[in-house]
Amino acid sequence: MKKTLIKITLTVFVVAILVLVIQYFSQTGKAESDGTIIFVLIDESGEEIIRQSVDYTRLKEDGDPNTLFDILNSEFNVVCAGAMYQKDETCSHSFTNGHVILSVETVETDFFNSYIEIYHNGVYSNKGISLIEFKDKDVIELRYKQVG
């Protein structure tokens, strides 16, 4: 009985820690105010094919905060990764750490052999497109990257 009680206590404790860790690392990136984002898209040959300013509002129509993914998805033709990293044109699947983008306009990747790198104001982003915090006049560069 005592042994089971210890196990239950430990289980509750570690599950609580896991929830906190996941919450901390999966906080969606929000904007402090309305503004403009500059999106840059670079293809496999290193050529800049899109450089476009996109106006955004801090909140979406439903009142939820706008994320970089939401802004990108509303302005460009985006294909996301589904649960098995297959192409998901609806972008309905979101991983623990947000959406994974496979394609933007004509730049297409498959996640396994190529993927899209994100640079935030010229710095390699430690976070995914759904988690990056951003502000007015930030530059988001999406670069095609070959694996290996």
């Binding site: 860790v21 996941i22 690392f25 623990t96 750490n97 993927y115 976070k127």
Partner: peptide, 21 residues
């Protein structure tokens, strides 16, 4: 993947925590 070491290490923490627990 050619992902820099530190971003990969940071991004992997929640997945390591899930496996550990």
């Amino acid at each position: 993947t050619n992902v820099p070491f530190i971003p990969y290490l940071v991004a992997d923490i929640p997945f390591e925590a899930i496996m550990a627990i």
